[in-house]
């Protein structure tokens, strides 16, 4: 019994410590994004998992731009990629973005510093469903920065994004 109490205490302390060390609360709703790799803060086993609510807590940015995938310009809203990585204390030069269908693309983390790259959770104010290329859609400010209007950056705009691995 005593041993059990000690164990529970240890476990509690451990959990507290872990929670304090990671500084990231656990997701409550459905996980929409997991970040792995060289990150300091985690809330699961070596990964940081985000539900929509957690992403919504971060500063929100909107960009209205034309894209190859839609007829008209759309307004994409969500946290900046660099804010997410900063929150997690991520360090690395490359971010491998993985989609639902296991498609992945490598994005230089420099991009996130150079441009306001958004991890869009909403399109024209509507939450992105999987059918609408959700849950997350990486968007560059194409109309605002014309030098990003080419295939290299269009390719980096991965949709149905579910995971980012910082390397």
């Amino acid at each position: 019994m005593k041993t059990l109490r000690l164990f529970l205490l240890m476990l509690g302390l451990g959990l507290c410590f872990q929670s304090f060390a990671s500084g990231l609360r656990a997701p409550e709703g459905a996980v929409v994004l997991t970040v792995a790799g060289n990150i300091l803060k985690t809330n699961e086993d070596h990964v940081a998992a985000f539900d929509l609510n957690m992403l919504d807590q971060l500063p929100q940015h909107s960009v209205n731009t034309t894209t190859p995938w839609f007829d008209k310009p759309k307004t994409f809203t969500g946290p900046l990629a660099r804010d997410v990585l900063k929150l997690l204390g991520a360090s690395g030069t490359n971010a491998r973005a993985v989609a639902l269908n296991d498609y992945h693309i490598d994005i230089p983390t420099q991009d996130f510093d150079d441009f306001d790259v958004i991890l869009a959770t909403r399109i024209d104010g509507e939450i992105l469903s999987i059918r609408d290329k959700g849950p997350l859609f990486i968007i560059y400010p194409f109309d605002q920065i014309p030098e990003t209007r080419n295939e290299v950056f269009f390719q980096r705009c991965i949709w149905q994004l579910v995971q980012v691995i910082v390397e």
Binding site: P68, W69, D71, L100, S129, I130, R131, D132, K133, Q160
Partner: peptide
């Protein structure tokens, strides 16, 4: 359900834009 949504997003892709 998820895979069905993904399939739908795949066919939806050709409904607008450059595709």
């Amino acid at each position: 359900n998820t895979r069905y949504s993904v399939l739908l997003s795949r066919t939806d892709l050709f409904k607008e834009g450059e595709f």
